[in-house]
Amino acid sequence: MSLLPSPSWKLPGALLLLSLVPVAAGAVRLLDVLKVSSGGLVTAENTRFMTMPGAVLAHIVAASLFCVLGAFQFDAAIRLRFPRLHRITGRVVALSGILTALTGLWMTAGMHIPAELQGELLYGARLLVGICMLLAISVSIRAVLRGRIAQHKAWMIRAYALGQGAGTQVLIMLPVALTAGTPTFFFRDILMTSAWGLNAVFAEWLIRRRWP
Rank of each mutant, 00 (worst) to 15 (best):
Ser2Pro: 15
Leu3Ala: 12
Leu4Tyr: 04
Pro5Met: 09
Pro5Tyr: 09
Trp9Asn: 04
Leu11Cys: 03
Pro12His: 03
Ala14Ile: 13
Ala14Ser: 11
Leu18Asp: 02
Ser19Asp: 03
Leu20Cys: 07
Val21Glu: 06
Arg29Gly: 01
Arg29Pro: 00
Leu34Tyr: 01
Lys35Arg: 15
Val36Asn: 00
Ser38Thr: 02
Gly40Glu: 03
Leu41His: 12
Thr43Cys: 09
Ala44Cys: 06
Glu45Tyr: 12
Asn46Cys: 08
Thr47Ser: 15
Phe49Cys: 06
Met52Gln: 12
Pro53Tyr: 00
Pro53Arg: 05
Gly54Asn: 11
Ala55Asp: 11
Leu57His: 04
Ile60Ser: 01
Val61Thr: 01
Ala63Ile: 05
Ser64Ala: 15
Ala71Tyr: 01
Phe72Gly: 01
Gln73Pro: 04
Asp75Gly: 04
Ile78Glu: 00
Pro83Asp: 05
Arg84His: 05
Leu85Val: 13
Ile88Ala: 13
Ile88Ser: 06
Arg91Pro: 00
Val92Trp: 10
Ala94Met: 13
Ser96Phe: 06
Leu99Trp: 08
Leu102His: 08
Thr103Asp: 06
Thr103Ser: 14
Leu105Trp: 00
Met107Tyr: 01
Ala109Gln: 13
Gly110Leu: 14
Gly110Met: 12
Met111Ser: 09
Pro114Lys: 07
Ala115Glu: 14
Leu117Lys: 12
Gly119His: 06
Leu122Glu: 10
Tyr123Gln: 10
Ala125Thr: 14
Leu127Tyr: 10
Leu128Ala: 15
Ile131Pro: 03
Leu135Ser: 13
Ala136Thr: 00
Val139Ile: 15
Ser140Glu: 09
Ser140His: 07
Leu145Pro: 01
Leu145Gln: 13
Arg146Asn: 10
Arg146Met: 09
Ile149Phe: 13
His152Arg: 10
Ala154Asp: 13
Ala154Asn: 12
Ala154Ser: 15
Met156Ala: 03
Met156Leu: 14
Arg158Pro: 00
Ala159Cys: 08
Gly163His: 00
Gly163Val: 05
Gly165Leu: 02
Gln169Asp: 09
Val170Glu: 08
Val170Ala: 10
Val170Tyr: 03
Leu171Tyr: 03
Met173Leu: 15
Pro175Phe: 04
Pro175Met: 07
Leu178Trp: 06
Thr179Phe: 08
Thr179Asp: 04
Thr179Asn: 07
Thr184Val: 13
Phe186Tyr: 09
Phe187Gln: 12
Phe187Tyr: 13
Ile190Cys: 08
Leu191Cys: 07
Gly197Cys: 11
Leu198Glu: 00
Leu198Val: 15
Asn199Lys: 08
Val201Pro: 01
Val201Asp: 04
Arg208Gly: 06
Arg208Thr: 02
Arg209Met: 11
Trp211Pro: 02
